[in-house]
Amino acid sequence: MTAGTGEGRDARRWRAVADRQPIADEPFVYAVATTGIYCRPGCPSRTPNRENVVYFATPAAAEAAGYRPCRRCWPQGADPDDSQTVAVARACRRLETDEAEPALADLAADAGLSAAQFRAVFKDRTGLTPKGYARAVRGHRMRAALEEGATVTEATYAAGYSGSARAHADAPGVLGMTASAYRKGGAGEVIDHATADSALGRVLVAATARGLCGIALGDDDGALLATLWARFPKATLRADGPAAQAVLPVVLRVVADPRQNVAALPEVPLDLRGTAFQLRVWEELRRIPPGETRTYTEVAAAIGQPSATRAVANACGANPVAPVVPCHRVVRSDGGLGGYRWGLERKKALLREEEA
């Protein structure tokens, strides 16, 4: 092959990458040296800088060179619409609608996989194990029943629990407190909070003994505290308590440099309280690398529910610990920023900082 021919082929490949249009008569994958990931042409990820791109004839060649497959375009042969993804979506519907929790073996058999294989595939697609997903679903049901005025016993059975022991054990994780305390608006719950100046104005952090449960950004401490009261109207809010003081420096670091959220996530335990769907969305947000963005549509597809774009946007808006869980990295398909609970100027500032 002459140099001219090679240069012409690379130019053709680059055009395919930039236009997201595979070449019908020349299958190949491309890798990005700065990320260590390889993709197939057509990948919805942000277009890389041309000087960082190298090409391989096969996925095996890319992996032999040390690159990892992209988890969005599945260049090694899987596809977001493959049978495993469909099976996971089907399992999610069963976990959400079946009166009794399906056994792992039954879900695996339906997918044509062993129990261990299915568990791994399910967690890869949703960020939760089947057991964890079922637990989150029951928590959502219990929360809804309690908010509608059900007694703890009524809510326990409405959620799908066969008895009170498991519900009692799960409640702190899925509700953030006991069921009786949740029913009373957080009565008995102690939530530490602290405020400070940050790169984006005043910041309030809230934490329980289990971990960081809230971040609020604004200009007025009273308004920030009001958002916490609204979430936990009967909880005991403790100013400058030790749990909040422990996480405040990390949160301030992330607000100043949102790229630090990757390091902060293992450093700071999170006490997230949401529906099963919200937890899946928030887990997916944590996978978006600093400096990159995803559209609401892409996040919906990544969690196996491509038609749930609006619900994804709502889950981003309900994210209680932005920017540690980086919902600012999700934008509209038309290039617009979309919404941000703490104001679009703050979203712009976070994205500018990451791009810098």
Rank of each mutant, 00 (worst) to 15 (best):
E189T: 14
G127Q: 04
R138I: 10
T126Y: 07
R183C: 06
R141I: 10
L200M: 14
G160N: 05
A144T: 15
D98C: 10
G139R: 03
G186M: 08
K123R: 15
E189H: 08
A169T: 10
L104Q: 09
V205D: 10
E189L: 15
V121D: 02
G149H: 15
T97H: 13
G139E: 06
A165N: 14
E96C: 06
G163L: 05
T156D: 03
L95H: 03
D197I: 04
V137P: 06
Y133E: 02
P130T: 10
E148L: 14
D170F: 01
A109M: 11
A199C: 09
R202G: 09
G139T: 04
A179E: 01
S114L: 12
F122I: 00
A159W: 02
H168L: 06
S180T: 14
V174C: 02
A136V: 05
R202E: 14
G139P: 02
A103L: 13
A165P: 03
V174R: 01
R141M: 08
E101V: 15
R183W: 02
S180H: 06
Y133I: 11
E189M: 13
M177T: 06
A136K: 11
E101A: 10
A115H: 03
V203E: 00
E99M: 12
L146M: 10
A209I: 06
A120S: 13
T208I: 04
A167T: 01
L95G: 02
G173T: 13
A108W: 05
T178M: 02
T151P: 10
R119V: 03
A187E: 12
A181F: 00
R135T: 10
V205Q: 02
L146W: 04
R125S: 08
T151W: 09
D197W: 11
G211E: 03
A179Q: 03
A171T: 02
E147M: 11
T208D: 04
R183H: 08
G127R: 03
R202I: 11
L95W: 12
E96V: 08
A206D: 05
Y161P: 03
D197S: 13
E147I: 07
V152K: 06
R202Y: 09
T151G: 15
A165C: 12
K131H: 14
L146P: 10
T97C: 10
A120Q: 14
G112H: 08
M142K: 00
G132Q: 06
E189I: 13
A159E: 02
L175Q: 02
A105I: 12
A207L: 07
G188D: 06
E96T: 09
M177P: 04
S198M: 04
T178A: 05
S164V: 05
A145Q: 03
A150W: 09
T129F: 10
G112N: 07
H168K: 15
L175C: 05
A206W: 00
A169M: 11
A108Q: 01
G163P: 01
G132D: 06
L104C: 03
G163T: 03
